[in-house]
Nucleic acid binder design. Sequence first.
DNA 1: ATTCGGACTTGCCGTAAACACC
DNA 2: GGTGTTTACGGCAAGTCCGAAT
Length: 895
Amino acid sequence: MEHGSDSEDDKPLIFKRSNTSVKQNQAKPDVKKSSVQKPDGKSGRPISDVRSTNGHDSNVQKGKTVPSTKGSPVVSPLASPKASVSSSKASQVKPPVGSTKASTSGADQSRQNSQQNRTAIVKAERPSGIPKEEPDSGSEDSDDDKPLNSRLPVGGSKGSISEVNRRPSSSGPAALAKDLGIKEEDSEDDIPLSHKFKQKSNAGESSNAYDSDEGKPFASKPRQNGTNVKDNVKNPSTAINKRPSAEVKCSGQSPVKKAKHTAASTPVNGKKVTVKAEPKKEADDSDDDNATISQRVKKPATPISKASDKKKSAVSVSSSLNKVNKNSKKITKSTQFSKSLKVPPGSGEGQKWTTLVHNGVIFPPPYKPHGVKMLYKGKPVDLTPEQEEVATMIAVMQDTEYMTKPVFRENVMNDWKKILGRNHIIKNLDDCDFTPIYEWHQTEKEKKKQMSAEEKKAVKEEKLKQEEKYMWAVVDGVKEKVGNFRVEPPGLFRGRGEHPKMGKLKKRISPSDITINIGKDAPIPECPIPGESWKEVRHDNTVTWLAYWNDPINGKEFKYVFLAASSSLKGQSDKEKYEKARKLKGYIEGIRTAYTKDFSSKDVTKRQIAVATYLIDKLALRAGNEKDDDEADTVGCCTLKVENVEPSPPNILKLDFLGKDSIRYQNEVEVEIPVFKAIQQFRSGKKGSDNLFDKLDTSKLNAHLKELMPGLSAKVFRTYNASITLDEMLNKETKGGDVSQKVAVYQHANKEVAIICNHQRSVSKSHSTQMMRLDEKINELKNLIEELKTDLSRAKKGKPPLKGSDGKTKRNMNPEAIEKKIAQTNVKIEKMERDKETKEDLKTVALGTSKINYLDPRITVAWCKRYEVPIEKMFNKSLLAKFAWAMDVEPSFRF
DNA sequence: ATTCGGACTTGCCGTAAACACC
DNA sequence: GGTGTTTACGGCAAGTCCGAAT
């Protein structure tokens, strides 16, 4: 499309473009790797996707799997098609999750099942030197394209942002300010969030522009650590061979073959490498940043009453250069990071703010008894409001899978009994019939849905009015949005996976449970519930929370109220996170060399640290803290059990475990021989449930990482690998074309990152229906083509067209017109098929998580500037606000 | 050397809101 | 204008990590 134009205006942008482009092609050449699927017998579900390992360089490899191939029995029909097509992506086809679910009934279940099953197969590898080859480069993945297109529209709305932000602010803020005693002043308020800082200062970053080289380091070069091996994952069976070849290039090390490769390839220098000097640039950058920030403080313009001391808000203007910013510009205004104080050397250590004003939290409304009676052994039962409240919570869960879980049922009953009292008639859940309450609830829902637009609007406004004062806080004179100012309402705990506490009653939180943190000179928020008072009021400026209460399920844990993601405080730490990851780029080569060397260390602990670090780096695994028995049984790297990692000679590791949120991680990876041997060794003599890394825990691992690079911890690898992968893929695959094509490239990269990080989502309930619907439409079009072809040949002979399939007569068209129509229809079919493929491809992949948490927004912003893609196409309103700090990055920025 | 408390980030999901399509 | 979809957001659970206490 017209991107060009788009950019320019703010507004409308592009909406419709989506289709226009028909993209061209999608050629799909490649097919490179095939993936393999793993049969995965265990779960029975076939999993097909392949996932790659981290990408260091190459990143992704993706192969796509072809369903058909896969052994798994259940292949979904759908999948097959794509296989052929998409070369580019590795699509992962997932097995039909559906099958599983079918068996189970509840919706919930389905999701759960699906999740657990998902697997990823990795494929792997990164050849050492070469970054992936991209299969598609040329072709661009068609698959992806589509999706994007479709999505585009959304983001695009124009100036929405500004508006939005402002809106609230204007009204809200002002009010708040008053309450708080602040003055409203200028515009600042208007744009609370928007702070964008100007970062010009960051210019430093720009320097990076070329870092890429550095980045590449490993990529381009053979990875030192053995990574080169590429991990190809593959499936054991199949793929093994293939991959290697693919990788190829580099050194051709096929993993299999020689372990040595690695070694060979990588020259290890003597000792651990350790840190190299810091890469200068990075260091600089960071410094700059800090500086910047502080500098930004510039004018105190608005005086905030209290705030004052330090910085006040400055107004910044956005510099924005490009169009990209345009929209945003308005929004942005300025503000600096308040946080400047933070760590920066000079400032007080640990201080997060100087003045903090807010209105506390808002509580859910008290329970309103409905009087609908549930049945116990078939008879209506009278319940007190407190008892009825719990009964209603249970009733509402009727159609979820939780109600089929014994643990849930038992926990609910135990807690409910405490409220029912010792001698209540209701003794057990099996004899309870909550249908009346359930139906009442459904009716209420329906009523709400049926309200007229005006009524809904009125309700909404009423709610907004009540909540307005709680939505904002003033930090160091800058109005900031508060994140979760609503106290969590009572309910039944919905733990994920097989959580031992699922079903327990989360009691209602009252003011006496809440500790408020606020500036010393700020007025203490009035307790919203008459007659009650806060548990405590603190004035701790070394923390960022505004309030907290103890978690009713696990009294030792807290629930905090923080500022929203768009706040300077959060933005600053977000930026620091990415700077740390960029810093790792300068150390990664040395770190890889070092751990590779330690794969064969005589010291078991060292060997375990090396292997664990390798897995974290290569597979983007989480650290894996120890967990209590009263939590779901999930693991991370340090807590992997022997049974979670199965070595398959000569050098394949089959990983299968439940990670965070009980999401299953299933992958087969080719590793370097020393790693493979070390794993076998760690497993020997242990039971399946024993820890693989018995000499390790996250604190030891992180302590070790800190010796390699200041501030380094396990999670930094995830950030680093995710961001570097995006940066490299964008750089390598963006070839021009219209905006939608570029967006497709981005989505493709985003998808690879999501796969690396194992970010999954459950298949939507209507997925299969939607796919069928698409098939129907495609078939209709195909039939149309046949009809047109007939008409065409008749037209050439001067005969009129036959009646259409619908029985209607068609008007006469000349051959040229018919040919044109055929061509148009074909284009339409192609587009639909690509859409379908993409949809199937992404059905279990969640792109959002990585975008929000792992991909340095500056990569995206700079790329948008370079390729003239409106940033609104990539970031929605929330993300634009959250990443305000990244908007002024130089177009040449590289991670 | 560990455990534990505490603070903050990460992650999936459900639902509301915004669109796309008859 | 209703309705099926798609996207945006909020909710809240579940991790990570660090430093102090034991």
